[in-house]
């Protein structure tokens, strides 16, 4: 996917180094809270690299293997089907979870927490796969404007935004660059 580096109107609020520090701190919070025996499940698209990075940091510090997974919430979204204005249905992506999630402490991981609708869909998806002991939520950026009663347990950075502003989180694995931007842009970066 091509990424424009200098979209007009976007201001960088986290650079590569700041993003790394933030993720390290989030990992530490998770370990502090639940130890290293957790399952990190990234929500497609950019929750996935975030979960993987968090897992690596925890593995390095806790010295044990951390299980991670990927979750596609598309089939549980509240905006597929007739409500969707566009002709297109979202593409389905792979869901990969450890063999059983029963009894686990499971962290849902996403890049941005906004309305809370994605988290609602993710919770519903998870519950059809099993019965974790606890589900927590870790996000890199909490930008406010909740529409559902959802709160994150681990937040990398709280960023006050106005409703029509965009938050752009980029990961080298997907976008070729690390960083977080805020502002209004027209280029199509998911």
């Amino acid at each position: 996917m091509a990424t424009k580096q200098n979209n007009s109107g976007l201001v960088q609020i986290l650079d590569r180094a700041a993003m790394k520090r933030t993720i390290d701190r989030m990992a530490a919070e998770i370990v502090e809270r639940d130890g290293g025996d957790v399952v990190l499940v990234g929500i497609h698209t950019r929750g996935v690299p975030l979960a993987e990075r968090l897992a690596r940091v925890i593995e390095a510090s806790a010295g044990q293997k951390v299980r991670s997974g990927r979750l596609d919430i598309t089939l549980y979204r509240d905006d597929v089907g007739p409500w969707r204005p566009a002709h297109e249905q979202p593409l389905l992506k792979e869901t990969f979870l450890p063999d059983s999630i029963d009894g686990e402490v499971l962290y849902l991981v996403d890049d941005v927490l906004f309305t809370g609708r994605t988290v609602r869909a993710a919770l519903d998806t998870l519950m059809d796969y099993g019965r974790p002991r606890a589900v927590r939520l870790a996000v890199l950026v909490d930008r406010g404007h909740r529409e559902l009663p959802v709160a994150a347990d681990v937040v990398g950075r709280k960023v006050p935004t106005s409703r029509d502003e965009d938050i752009r989180v980029r990961f080298a694995e997907i976008d070729g660059v690390d960083g977080v931007w805020i502002g209004r842009e027209t280029a199509d970066v998911e």
Binding site: G81, P82, P85, H87
Partner: peptide
């Protein structure tokens, strides 16, 4: 699933 979306003209990427 694929046929369950809205129909008509595709809207430009939003």
């Amino acid at each position: 699933y694929l046929l369950s979306g809205g129909h008509g003209e595709p809207t430009p990427a939003s």
